[in-house]
């Protein structure tokens, strides 16, 4: 798909972010708390979130072959509290592993919106960045962040499991620092994302938001 159909850069944040990057809209009760307390609470919450990442076990492309070794003795991602979950309701990280066909994009949107926030998306491999070797394919997307907010890209074709572990380390640091706010951006710029998604998915039969 030629990406010239779309504006290349997502719009800027229309709203200021929460202090310390709590990474979400603050509720009414939290808005009234003093700033120092808010920051301290955000730090504690983000530490919990970062140290227990549950990964959605969903492979879209050939990159998912590099995800499997992470659960084995050689790489063992459970050391970092990460686990594979079979259902989007219980996952926090969605990994788009390699090329993403338009048909799978629909399922990805559905799975992504069903995940409880805060949630993070990791784009794995060059296919998610610029299309990679599928850049002129008729049925794969070229830029993932036009459709779902991506918090971290891991480049390579394919990145080795070591690179994935390194990437998850970076993601954990970003979450602890409150910088992984992609899901917040998705809520803020919902119209822009939906417009892009609908341009590509011609047989759109999803609800406006998949609760």
């Amino acid at each position: 798909m030629a990406s010239s159909k779309f504006p290349l850069a997502p719009p800027e944040h229309s709203r200021p972010h929460a202090p310390m990057g709590e990474g979400c809209f603050l509720g009414e009760t939290e808005r009234q708390q003093p700033l120092a307390l808010k920051e301290a609470l955000a730090k504690i919450k983000n530490w919990f979130r970062a140290n227990s990442l549950w990964v959605m076990a969903y492979g879209t492309g050939c990159g998912s072959i590099e995800l499997r070794p992470l659960t084995t003795a050689r790489f063992d991602m459970e050391r970092f509290g990460m686990a594979m979950r079979p259902t989007p309701r219980q996952s926090n990280v969605l990994i788009i592993s390699g090329y993403l066909s338009v048909k799978s994009l629909k399922r990805v949107i559905r799975a992504y919106e069903q995940m409880p926030s805060p949630k993070w998306v990791v784009g794995l491999g060059s296919c998610t960045i610029n299309g990679g070797m599928y850049w002129d394919s008729y049925n794969t997307i070229n830029r993932l962040d036009l459709y779902v907010p991506v918090d971290l890209y891991i480049a390579g074709c394919m990145p080795r499991p070591e690179a994935l572990l390194e990437g998850f380390g970076v993601l954990m640091e970003k979450i602890k620092a409150g910088e992984a706010n992609g899901w917040n951006h998705y809520l803020e710029q919902m119209d822009w994302y939906k417009e892009n998604q609908k341009k590509l998915i011609t047989d759109w039969d999803l609800p406006d938001y998949n609760w």
Partner: peptide
Amino acid sequence: GRIGPPVYQGFIDLGKLLVLRTAT
């Protein structure tokens, strides 16, 4: 033959599930 999570991982998981924002 793996190293495995820390023994207090259950507490972290419980804490994390409590501070997730959306509950459908």
